[in-house]
Amino acid sequence: MNQFYDVTAISADEKELKRIATKYGVKNHHIEMTRTISPLDDLKAVWKLYRFLKKEKPELVHSHTPKAGIVGMMAAFLAGVPNRFHTVAGLPLLEATGTKRKVLNFVEKLTYSFATKVYPNSFGLNEIIIQEGFCQLEKLKVIGKGSSNGINTSYFDKTLFSESANQSLKEQLKIEADDFVFIFVGRLVGDKGINELIAAFKTLTSTALSDHLNLNLNLNRKLLLVGPYEQELDALKTDTLQEIEQNSNIISVGFQPDVRAYFAIANALVFPSYREGFPNVVLQAGAMGLPSIVSNINGCNEIIKDHQNGLIVPVKNTEALAEAMRDLVDDEILYQSLQHQSRKRIMENYEQEVVWQALLAEYKKVTDHV
């Protein structure tokens, strides 16, 4: 967008904001925001952003994430910004109940009321917004076939990583040449399905020896976890944490700025999330040639077609998850069939440049640029 517009990036994490702004050659402005329900802090953020927008007088403000959405859309509305776009990349409220759900519903409606356009990043999310009555229909639109940003398949490409580089990383992580490696990439929190994933993998490894003896099937299975814990926001169960620590077949490497090398040594993505918008990690895994096991939720079940480029399992179902993982390990014909379609489907439907052009067209409709 900075080829067509004077772009300013605004975010809460000042250090990361400056790094990204420098990388992409855009201006930046730091506004502190929390990720929790914090009305006083949120109003302070709205006030600070309002003052900045009144001074800068932008043609368009485009917000992402629920908290940046309410802060950004309210401040832009109050500052008289004519074009106020909000991308919905997931609804945390779907897992909330009681008073918290009512509060989050209200905030979501308020965000959309301040926006002039609302872009759910999947068709499933679009349907949920309509069903919940969050937004006027004329404001809603899904860009392209879904996704907030598409995927750069030239960047996420397994052929960029040599066999020697892959072997070196495997040795570092103590992964053997004949290990079947499941990978999860994302925050290690409850609503990403980590409790179910660890329980399913425990079942898989505990039955692996008997399977091997009786049926001569693959014994070596590893689970590679790439991502940070967020215990203060969505804590994992104690049993889950203990299993991650004690199971020698589970390898946790924490947050990694570049996940491609880890995809390159894996065989399949497992992503049993409870809720998503349009998960980038599933796009990334597919572009790297990996089939995916995903939960049957919006976004995931749009990228993955069951038994075409991956497997779809019910949400929060440990048994079904373990069975799907076992199928990929033990059924080589199934695995190769899914793998063959993985990168092809992403390239045909979610190439980044296509999404960018579609979004640029939305901007051009409402700005002075031709």
Score class of each variant (00 low, 15 high):
residue 210 S to D: 14
residue 222 K to W: 01
residue 202 K to W: 07
residue 218 N to A: 15
residue 196 E to F: 03
residue 240 T to P: 07
residue 228 P to C: 02
residue 207 T to M: 09
residue 223 L to T: 00
residue 218 N to P: 11
residue 223 L to G: 07
residue 197 L to R: 00
residue 216 N to Y: 04
residue 234 D to A: 12
residue 221 R to A: 12
residue 217 L to R: 08
residue 231 Q to M: 14
residue 212 H to F: 14
residue 203 T to P: 06
residue 208 A to W: 05
residue 236 L to D: 07
residue 210 S to K: 09
residue 198 I to H: 10
residue 202 K to M: 05
residue 234 D to P: 03
residue 224 L to D: 07
residue 199 A to I: 02
residue 224 L to H: 07
residue 232 E to K: 15
residue 234 D to M: 05
residue 222 K to S: 01
residue 233 L to E: 10
residue 220 N to F: 08
residue 219 L to F: 12
residue 198 I to Y: 13
residue 231 Q to N: 13
residue 215 L to V: 08
residue 241 L to A: 08
residue 227 G to T: 00
residue 203 T to N: 14
residue 211 D to Q: 06
residue 235 A to Y: 03
residue 238 T to I: 13
residue 221 R to E: 08
residue 239 D to K: 03
residue 223 L to E: 06
residue 220 N to Y: 08
residue 214 N to T: 14
residue 212 H to A: 06
residue 213 L to F: 12
residue 229 Y to Q: 07
residue 196 E to Y: 03
residue 205 T to M: 09
residue 222 K to R: 08
residue 238 T to C: 00
residue 212 H to E: 10
residue 229 Y to L: 14
residue 234 D to F: 07
residue 220 N to E: 09
residue 213 L to A: 06
residue 220 N to M: 04
residue 230 E to H: 14
residue 205 T to P: 09
residue 233 L to Y: 10
residue 238 T to G: 00
residue 217 L to C: 06
residue 237 K to G: 11
residue 208 A to F: 05
residue 233 L to T: 04
residue 218 N to D: 13
residue 215 L to T: 11
residue 211 D to M: 02
residue 200 A to R: 00
residue 237 K to S: 13
residue 204 L to F: 03
residue 205 T to Y: 10
residue 216 N to F: 04
residue 208 A to T: 01
residue 198 I to F: 13
residue 237 K to L: 15
residue 211 D to H: 04
residue 224 L to S: 09
residue 226 V to I: 04
residue 215 L to N: 15
residue 217 L to A: 08
residue 221 R to P: 04
residue 220 N to H: 13
residue 234 D to I: 01
residue 206 S to Y: 09
residue 226 V to Y: 11
residue 199 A to P: 02
residue 228 P to N: 05
residue 203 T to S: 14
residue 221 R to H: 11
residue 227 G to W: 03
residue 236 L to N: 05
residue 241 L to C: 11
residue 233 L to H: 13
residue 197 L to F: 02
residue 208 A to L: 03
residue 210 S to A: 13
residue 206 S to V: 03
residue 213 L to G: 09
residue 219 L to G: 03
residue 208 A to I: 01
residue 237 K to V: 09
residue 237 K to H: 14
residue 225 L to Q: 02
residue 232 E to F: 05
residue 236 L to M: 05
residue 239 D to V: 14
residue 228 P to Y: 02
residue 206 S to K: 05
residue 210 S to E: 14
residue 241 L to V: 13
residue 223 L to Q: 06
residue 226 V to Q: 10
residue 202 K to S: 15
residue 233 L to G: 06
residue 229 Y to T: 08
residue 236 L to W: 07
residue 213 L to Q: 13
residue 201 F to P: 01
residue 205 T to K: 10
residue 210 S to I: 15
residue 216 N to D: 14
residue 196 E to G: 02
residue 208 A to N: 05
residue 200 A to S: 08
residue 198 I to P: 09
residue 214 N to Y: 06
residue 206 S to R: 04
residue 213 L to E: 12
residue 220 N to I: 04
residue 239 D to S: 15
residue 223 L to I: 00
residue 197 L to P: 02
residue 236 L to K: 04
residue 201 F to T: 00
residue 216 N to P: 03
residue 220 N to S: 12
residue 215 L to I: 10
residue 198 I to G: 09
residue 211 D to G: 04
residue 226 V to F: 12
residue 223 L to H: 06
residue 237 K to T: 13
residue 198 I to D: 11
residue 239 D to W: 11
residue 228 P to K: 09
